[in-house]
């Protein structure tokens, strides 16, 4: 790891100010991706601004149908939240299967979506749930937020403060994890709203990060069952191919995982 300067932020304003002070400063949330990347010298931020002590970025609240999750809330906290389990159980299931227990004790929802790893779990969940990403300056819809592989709509120095989700009528997540890393080889999150509309988001498979599967959304809007997906064919031309799986294999996984997610949603 190259040398860096550590700063501990006490508030959102403090964090934004501290990050603007460094040449190539970065926010440090749980650090479960950033620190390993720095250790490999693939990232070399001049300064790190630690967000773990910003009280306004922590905690979970459910008000009516609105779930608000502070950006510095860990995966373990989301996985074990009785409030989220009651309103949006698919999200608890998703959080409970990120990495391993130790990673889940540190890694945060804000850190995960800011990184927008093409095989991370949260981008699929938040895109399918039509979440709103609240930053220090504005609110961004998930459709606008995830702009491509490792890319988001965040401006330089902009900080995610919280994520807001309207509780769906039903939701489910299924992933086929890479056996070594536990990242999604393919993961599919399915959410059905009270008005019957359905959103299906796929992670791990797209060559440009998380994406929605329109054909599946239509099929599930008229019949929310796993068998409704039988007739859907998944085009593999925009899917990733690597040593772990070809794009054709991933295309098949998209369908299998989507069916499992619908079944899990009940």
């Amino acid at each position: 790891m190259y040398a860096t300067n550590y700063h501990r932020a006490s508030s959102v304003e403090d964090a934004v100010q501290l990050v603007s002070g460094g040449d190539e400063a970065k926010f440090l949330s749980g650090g479960q991706t950033l620190l390993p990347t720095m250790k490999q010298r693939l990232a070399a931020p001049s300064d790190l601004v630690d967000l773990r002590h910003v009280a306004a970025m922590k905690g979970i609240s459910v008000n009516g149908g609105t779930i608000r999750i502070g950006a510095a809330t860990t995966h373990a906290e989301v996985a074990n939240s009785a409030e989220i389990a009651a309103a949006c159980p698919g999200l608890c299931h998703l959080a409970a299967h990120i990495g391993d227990p130790h990673v889940r004790h540190m890694g945060t929802i804000g850190g995960s979506i800011a990184n927008n790893d093409p095989a991370a779990d949260y981008p699929a969940g938040l895109l399918a749930l039509n979440a709103t990403i609240v930053t220090n300056t504005r609110s961004i819809s998930a459709d606008d937020f995830f702009t491509g592989m490792f890319d988001t709509a965040l401006e330089e120095g902009e900080l995610i403060v919280a994520v807001e989700i309207t509780a769906p009528a039903k939701c489910g997540y299924a992933k086929f994890p890479n056996p070594a890393s536990r990242y999604a080889l393919t993961g599919v999150f399915v959410a059905r709203q009270g008005d019957g509309s359905v959103r299906v988001a796929v992670t791990g498979a797209g060559s440009d990060g998380v994406f929605r599967q329109a054909e599946m959304e239509q099929a599930l809007a008229s019949d929310f069952s796993a068998t409704a997906l039988d007739g859907v064919s998944v085009d593999d031309s925009d899917l990733m191919a690597d040593i772990h799986a070809s794009s054709a294999y991933r295309a098949n996984l998209v369908k299998v995982m989507a069916k499992r997610a619908v079944t899990a949603a009940g």
Binding site: Y6, R8, L28, G31, L35, D50, A76, H102, H105
Partner: peptide
């Protein structure tokens, strides 16, 4: 809480 101490800075644990 159990964490991986190779993936945390000493400064974070202050």
């Amino acid at each position: 809480k159990a964490v991986k101490s190779c993936t945390m800075l000493a400064a974070q644990a202050d």
